[in-house]
Write a protein that binds this DNA or RNA. Sequence first.
DNA 1: GAGCTTGTTCGATTTTTGTCGAACAAGGGT
DNA 2: ACCCTTGTTCGACAAAAATCGAACAAGCTC
Lengths: 105, 105
Amino acid sequence: MELHEPELREVPVTAVLGALADDVRLQIVRALAEGGEYACGSFEFGVSKATRSHHLKVLREAGLTRTRAAGTSRYVRLRRDELDRLYPGLLDAVLTRSAAPGERV
Amino acid sequence: MELHEPELREVPVTAVLGALADDVRLQIVRALAEGGEYACGSFEFGVSKATRSHHLKVLREAGLTRTRAAGTSRYVRLRRDELDRLYPGLLDAVLTRSAAPGERV
DNA sequence: GAGCTTGTTCGATTTTTGTCGAACAAGGGT
DNA sequence: ACCCTTGTTCGACAAAAATCGAACAAGCTC
């Protein structure tokens, strides 16, 4: 299966930002930011499983997540430490603003 | 001409990130981050002026820049204060990593 | 006013991206 | 062995985005 998980520093900034620039993926990242591992199937954001698989792949190949296979499931987690080291403030900035626009901050 | 400059808080996070998730626009933002105003024409990043105009529009409508018209020129500047207030760390995180990937950090 | 400069807007084209259903692969249970 | 569960991959398609040249608009300058 060859889980392609690049070194974060090898990933162009635009790819990291592009991975975050999507509603579905942002919801996934927000869920992952709670910490711990989540089975792929635990993400129910109104898209088909093919689409969900696609988004998880984008996140993984942008260096944002790691994936571990166990049985028929796969467990995904955020590469938060690396992210925070290479992009200090990025995740926090994005996550605290992840709500729908319009509300007061 | 109606320069459409939205309130930053009204702009979806994905739009802000999407605006930054492009090489040309990231170069523009890096230039703008030096501070001060720049005429649109001062950005020479290997694209036609139509394309450059397009990218500046994307940045403006994502709430990242303000544009002031003076004579036949337009002067663009980064809305850094607002950005830093609403997305603390975002700009810094992105700009310090704006170099081509591959180098040591 | 004619002509130049600076930008924007308008198609048109190409590329990228999001989406899905269907087919497939791999593991676990009975 | 068979089936069910969990995910991925494979077309296909639609929508969005990047790009350009050409036409246009608005200020200058002479």
